[in-house]
Design a protein around this nucleic acid. Structure first.
Lengths: 122, 122, 122, 122
DNA sequence: GTGGTCTAGACCACA
DNA sequence: GTGGTCTAGACCACG
């Protein structure tokens, strides 16, 4: 049997959060992120961990660091659109994997989703 | 900001796995589960943890402990059908929540899922 | 006037050294690098710094980390050929920049190089 | 393994810059260099450092100090020509060493340089 | 033993 | 102030 747990490292969880904020437009193109130190305090983690998150986001071209000024969401709307698409596909892919693991067919997934939405609306 | 991590406790993760096995029909109605001791060894966890998992499943009327004999999947097909439905709805609900949080409409979710399945098949 | 110094960070200098070793075939495809700790001792730097170097090389697909086993030069010969080409172009580019800064024309650079080699051989 | 960093001392970096200026003819034979004090302010370094740079250049017969008047580029055109040749040869030599270290033959270096220039021009 | 993550705290470069 | 690098030392996951 496979092992348990395997939680994502904090620096990635933090990156996920920031990505979601961007996708939800709580953080807009060109907007400044919290400083490394402030984010560290607010998140209750070490500044180095935040630094690593920001570096990771910069590597993904989602964020741009300007020494002495701060870290900013990229101005490249295309990149942000791509991020939104990537996250969407990731969630869909996870959903399909889970449902497949439970033995549902693709057709049942779509039907199930539609029914659920239908019922919710009633 | 909320805290990080919050991995599900192991006993719940183990319960999830067993539920998935039942739903996939790898464990059938009336079938005997592994003994607490065997399951503990196989999963590499403490027997007490397995015991707690089995208790939890019994509380949900999914399994039934028979003193001196072991633990068995319920014979009640209705319960098992309900389990399948519950898990399905849980996953669907989670999916909708995540997509909603990213700002997608219900319509986009269904379309996105269909498109993804479509592309996958190509 | 522009500022002085600006030496590359240690983790990059170390990456450069390893890349050169690979290009010179002192480290071959598939070969194991020194462990993070050993390399740290040998180089007189902190293990975290070596770790960062290895991560960087992995991000560049030059090296592959296998948890519990070590870090290995990629088996992908194409990648290694590309590395060789990249380093070559980098050195050539630097050379051209320096010579240009001194006021030499492209033609003088080639001539100068050929003459130098000529004289060296005598 | 050799140590890292080993940035050239600032006084030598400054000497390099001045030499480059002379070679590019931004500073001509006989022209007056900035005063030690002015150069120190402009470069953001200590006047003693500039003094050391000027002494070094004087030792190389590239500049000439005239008490009470300042520091002047030598009038000796031969010297300046020699400086240009020395710098050129130094850069060429460095280039050859690096490329040799990477395992390139002399022929590949020349070819590589020509190809690079060729591609750049396109 | 291996690599991977995290913390604490220091120092640097830039503006 | 900002981000970037480095050290020291701890703990984890994997094999």
């Amino acid at each position: 049997m496979e092992d348990f747990q395997a939680t994502k490292p904090i620096y990635m969880q933090l990156a996920d959060r920031i990505n979601h904020k961007i996708v939800r437009n709580e953080l807009r193109a060109g907007e400044k992120l919290k400083s490394v130190r402030d984010m560290a305090v607010e998140s209750g983690v070490n500044p180095n961990t935040v630094q690593r998150t920001y570096s990771e986001l910069e590597r993904m071209d989602i964020v741009e660091s300007r020494r002495g000024q701060g870290t900013f969401v990229t101005e490249d709307k295309g990149k942000l659109q791509q991020l939104r698409d990537d996250l969407k596909n990731e969630h869909i892919s996870n959903f399909i994997n889970q449902m497949t693991e439970m033995g549902f067919s693709k057709n049942e997934m779509v039907k199930g989703l539609q029914n659920y939405i239908q019922k919710e609306g009633e």
